[in-house]
């Protein structure tokens, strides 16, 4: 029985559907608590989200009814857990890059991220990685900042050093 439940709700693509079901339930309950803001507004700010929540739950139910036992399983066998971590690792690097922009500013953060990213993805020497980082930093800076006149963070670190 336990194995059946695990297979139906927690394997392969069914895991995503289970998580989406939980999300739709939470979303629906949250939508129920949204107060009406205006007498003219007959249905209130929560009505449309509630409709979406119900629709999402119905679709999840349809999915579980139509689910086939073997979907997603083959893929699981090919890609192991550690390979998974290797792929998602770059996501943490991106988050670090974003936080770095706030800390040291856009151009240095771009340089650091691209250099480390290129090396992480298999470039043999740090020198080539740094060269790619430098070129991309210059290209992005000249286009976004110089040409489009967009203001990015200059970095709290430099402001702190300059005593501002």
């Amino acid at each position: 029985m336990g194995q059946k439940i695990k297979s139906l709700f927690f394997e392969g693509d069914r895991m995503i559907a289970t998580m989406m079901t939980i999300l739709f339930v939470v979303y629906y309950l949250e939508a129920e608590n949204i107060p009406k803001t205006n007498m003219e507004d007959k249905i209130g700010a929560g009505a449309f989200p509630q409709l979406i929540g119900v629709f999402g739950l119905l679709m999840c139910a349809c999915f579980f009814f139509s689910v086939r036992r073997n979907s997603g399983v083959q893929y699981e066998k090919i890609i192991g857990f550690f390979d998974e971590i290797k792929g998602v690792a770059i996501l943490f690097m991106v988050i670090a890059f974003v936080l770095l922009i706030d800390l040291i500013g856009y151009p240095p953060a771009t340089f650091v991220f691209v250099t480390i990213g290129v090396k992480f993805l298999g470039e043999r020497t740090w020198l080539v990685a740094a060269a790619v980082g430098g070129v991309l930093m210059a290209a992005c800076y000249s286009f976004f900042v110089w040409f489009l006149d967009i203001t990015f963070s200059t970095g709290d670190f430099w402001l702190m050093i300059m005593g501002e």
Binding site: F97, F113, G122, C140
Partner: peptide, 30 residues
Amino acid sequence: MRWLLPMIIVVAASGVLSKNGAILDVLFMC
């Protein structure tokens, strides 16, 4: 590919940041 992938991230993050300058938007992108 090892050069292209970080470039895609930088261009995408710069694009999102250029809209409102909000770090939260880039975190949503992630």
